[in-house]
């Protein structure tokens, strides 16, 4: 049973479930097979609130692989390629938007 705030989830387009990997905090996405991948391309993309809630509920069953799971928007290209749906998610995929000190 999803928590009340998740039941209110509004889904207006393609979404994925994302989280941070427990061991190192790296960004991961929930796959259709019920695992996690460090590649957005592997993410299960859903388009309805029910499907998103189900995907999230599955992701939250075990908190030893990934933590802080939530639903995030994505964009689907004409070729089916998945891209992050907002700036925050773009930064989570690509890292900080400036050159890191070195």
């Amino acid at each position: 049973m999803a928590a009340p705030q998740q039941q209110k989830l509004k889904v207006n387009g393609p979404v994925v479930v994302t989280a941070n990997r427990l061991t190192d905090g790296a960004v991961v996405w929930r796959t259709a097979a019920g695992g996690w991948s460090a590649e957005l391309a592997d993410a299960a993309v859903v388009t309805s609130a029910e499907a998103a809630i189900a995907l999230l509920a599955g992701a939250q069953q075990r908190d030893i692989d990934a933590v802080g799971a939530y639903v995030a928007p994505v964009l689907l290209g004409a070729d089916g390629a998945v891209a992050p749906g907002n700036l925050r998610e773009r930064i989570r995929v690509a890292g900080p938007t400036f050159e890191l000190p070195h």
């Binding site: 941070n20 905090g25 790296a26 960004v27 908190d63 933590v67 890292g95």
Partner: peptide, 24 residues
């Protein structure tokens, strides 16, 4: 897995460990 995230989070925070966008 002996500690859940809910149990662990306050412990890590007490040691200055946060979880940010890409990493701890």
């Amino acid at each position: 897995g002996a500690l859940s995230e809910d149990e662990f989070k306050p412990l890590r925070l007490m040691n200055g460990v946060y979880l940010q966008l890409h990493a701890y």
